[in-house]
């Protein structure tokens, strides 16, 4: 066997995937050819390098998201097979209840989808306006979602939990106003801050992940301060959202990934994580 033939087969030989006959021929050649032996050694070294790669572990929050999506798409009622015989009164009653539940579910899901569509449009408009006219954007959001200005202490009483922003942001953010909003997902606390170097940042805390807030804007993911974070380009600034313990944080108006990373780390530090 010639070197040019052996080189073609070395990779499969190394993997033990050649027939016995071909493997013997390659082995005979390698035993007497220093170049091909060196090539074979390179394959060993490449495998050694591969074993040095990190073996990252999947984060724990993925299964709950999968289950939630599967539940959302699951048909809630499986209609029973109808017997040809006369149905009893009880069976008819049960079927009527099932039908009612089914229709209610369909009405609910349509209403829910409709709400989400509206939410995407309204929030999309908020994002569109936020950078140029943050006050105007804020007033529209409040009008859409029955928002009311609130003190943090009152918000804690109404929400029945202590939002992460209750412990403050770094000193270069000055709180402007907090609002309670009645979003379709939940009651949501929004706190707006003025940056001391200019610009505005709004922080939302909400019960569920809300990807449709961002419509079809370009989205990407990044690990910020060790936490998977979704990033959305909004004009020249960033919106970002991540899970913070049992709830989700969304910030609007971040300057860059570094600022998002700093905020993620700050909230974790506040909670001793």
């Amino acid at each position: 066997m010639q070197c040019c033939e052996v080189v073609e087969l070395l990779s499969a030989y190394y993997d033990g995937e050649l027939s016995a006959e071909k493997a013997d021929a390659v082995a005979d050649h390698v035993a007497v050819c220093a170049n091909c032996a060196a090539e074979l050694e390179t394959l060993h070294k490449l495998s050694d390098l591969t074993t040095k790669l990190d073996q990252p572990s999947a984060p724990r929050h993925v299964w709950p998201r999968i289950a939630a999506q599967l539940n959302a798409s699951q048909s809630p009622v499986t209609p029973p097979a109808m017997p040809a015989q006369r149905a009893s009164r009880k069976t008819l009653f049960a079927l009527a209840v099932l039908l009612l539940v089914g229709l209610s579910w369909i009405a609910f899901t349509q209403w829910h989808a409709h709400e989400h569509q509206h939410l995407a449009v309204n929030f999309g408009h908020f994002l569109d306006t936020f950078e140029q006219a943050p006050d105007e954007a804020q007033q529209e959001l409040i009008a859409h979602y029955s928002g009311k200005p609130v003190e943090i202490a009152d918000a804690i009483r109404e929400l029945k939990y202590r939002p992460v922003v209750a412990d403050g942001l770094p000193p270069d953010y000055e709180p402007a106003q907090a609002y309670l909003l009645k979003m379709p997902c939940c009651r949501c606390l929004e706190v707006c801050y003025h940056r001391k170097d200019g610009g505005m940042l709004c922080v939302f805390e909400h019960d569920e992940d809300q990807p449709f807030w961002f419509g079809d804007r370009p989205t990407s993911s990044k690990v910020c301060a060790g936490k998977p974070t979704r990033l959305v380009q909004v004009d020249s600034s960033l919106a970002a959202t991540w899970q913070q313990q049992r709830r989700h944080i969304t910030v609007i108006g971040a300057k860059d990934v570094a600022e998002v990373t700093r905020l993620v780390a700050h909230f974790d530090q506040q909670r001793g994580l």
Binding site: P56, A58, I66, Q69, S220, S221, P228, T229
Partner: peptide, 26 residues
């Protein structure tokens, strides 16, 4: 999921792998 995640991290990067592993299992 660990073996899927391990593969996806190398294919698309650490930051994208979370969302993609979710997509794969869905």
């Amino acid at each position: 999921h660990q073996r899927v995640y391990r593969l996806l991290v190398r294919m698309v990067g650490l930051g994208e792998a979370d969302d993609l592993v979710q997509q794969v299992f869905l």
